[in-house]
Simulated assay, not measured.
Amino acid sequence: MASTRAFITGGNTGIGFESAKVLCQKGYDVTIGCRDDTRAANAVRAIKEGQPDAKIESVRLDLADLSSVAECYKTLSKQNKLDFDVLLNNAGVMACPKMTTKDGFEYQLGTNHLGHFALTNLLLPHLKEANKPVRIINVSSKGHQFGKMDFDDLFRDKPGAYGPLEAYGQSKRANILFTYELARRLEAEKQTQITVNTLHPGVITTELGRHITGGRWYMNWLIKAASYIFWFKTPAQGAETQLYLATSPDVANVTGKYFDNCKEVKSDGPTYDKEIAKKLWEVSEELVMPKIKALL
């Protein structure tokens, strides 16, 4: 009997690592994508120490570098691991200072959306050919409410246009728009066995917010103090909704939805604009796919 396979981007830390642990416990054959080989090896080792029979391995993946995305795909192809049952697009960065990816994209949009867009589209033909139930899960955030899709200045290059949290919000909005558009396209192709959903994992005590603190002692203190006032989730708690979407029979046939605390909720109004979603798809395709195809 074939293994149930899951691929998790950013599976070496935070909610990605917790998701990898749980899926291994459930008997999944898990591959984690990580840009740092040492951290990936440490994560694999940590899981195997707790679960000696865990089926887990890592592959190098830097979502801020399209050549790395292409190399990751080629590695998976050589391993004959392209027909995943679960694709968990989990990795992300938050509130970075203004910088760019290797391909010149604004770093948060490039990493959080465009890297995942490229990876998903590389895997998609194989997921379709597998002719089996597949769950694609895109981790977004309530932070999508902070940003808007500005196609005239997508990378916030105009003077004074860049704000770390607004750019983060745009990238998380892109995750949702991508989810809804992909769900519509799959439905139009009658690919009903493939579902795609998105989620807000919660406010979590992970290293994702490292750029917010900037190493400043008082910011770390304020975040610690806030954890006593607001409900900050642990990484294990933060992973619950994406694990629910990855494994629960309750959502086996649910697609094109946004979840919070394992319940379907509404994202904000403009995320349901089909024209914006279609344009984002077309712009994303134009930005990444020619480069990806040239690298394969």
Rank of each mutant, 00 (worst) to 15 (best):
Q191R: 07
K48A: 03
D83H: 01
E264Y: 11
Y228V: 11
V196N: 10
K158S: 07
Y244T: 00
D250G: 00
Y162H: 12
E129K: 15
V44L: 04
K224V: 14
C96V: 15
A239V: 01
K172V: 13
Q25I: 08
P97K: 13
E286N: 13
Y168T: 08
N42V: 09
R5T: 13
A130C: 04
V265S: 04
R45I: 01
D36M: 05
R185G: 04
N12W: 10
A118N: 06
A294T: 03
R156Q: 09
G256H: 04
F259Y: 14
Q79R: 15
C96S: 14
E240H: 02
I292G: 02
P164N: 06
L280S: 09
I229V: 15
K98L: 10
I32R: 08
V283P: 11
L127I: 03
V203P: 05
V265K: 12
L88M: 12
I47D: 00
T101C: 10
N80Q: 14
F155D: 15
E71I: 05
K263M: 11
A54T: 08
I212W: 06
G209V: 09
K78F: 02
T205S: 11
L186A: 06
E57P: 00
L87P: 11
E275I: 10
T101M: 06
Y168D: 04
N112C: 02
H200S: 04
L109D: 00
T271D: 02
G110T: 14
I204D: 11
C96Q: 13
I8D: 09
G92F: 07
Y258L: 02
I8H: 03
F84V: 07
A294N: 15
H113P: 13
E207N: 12
L186S: 04
K128Q: 14
G104D: 03
S284Y: 10
H126L: 03
N175A: 00
G163A: 02
N121M: 03
L23V: 08
I32L: 14
K190P: 02
D250Y: 04
T179H: 08
G33F: 06
Y218T: 14
P270K: 02
L222R: 14
L63D: 07
R184E: 12
I8E: 05
P270Q: 00
G33N: 11
L124F: 04
E187H: 12
K257W: 00
A2Q: 09
V93C: 10
I204F: 03
F84C: 08
L127V: 14
V203R: 05
Y180A: 02
D65N: 15
E166S: 01
A91F: 08
G27M: 12
A41R: 15
G269D: 15
L287V: 04
I194P: 08
C96K: 12
F151V: 12
T271H: 06
D103G: 06
Q193L: 11
P201T: 11
A20M: 09
R173A: 09
L63N: 13
A183V: 12
S284M: 06
K274S: 02
E129R: 12
N220A: 10
S140M: 07
Y162M: 11
S140E: 01
P159S: 00
K233F: 07
P97A: 02
A54C: 07
G27C: 10
A246G: 11
L222I: 15
N138Y: 05
E166T: 13
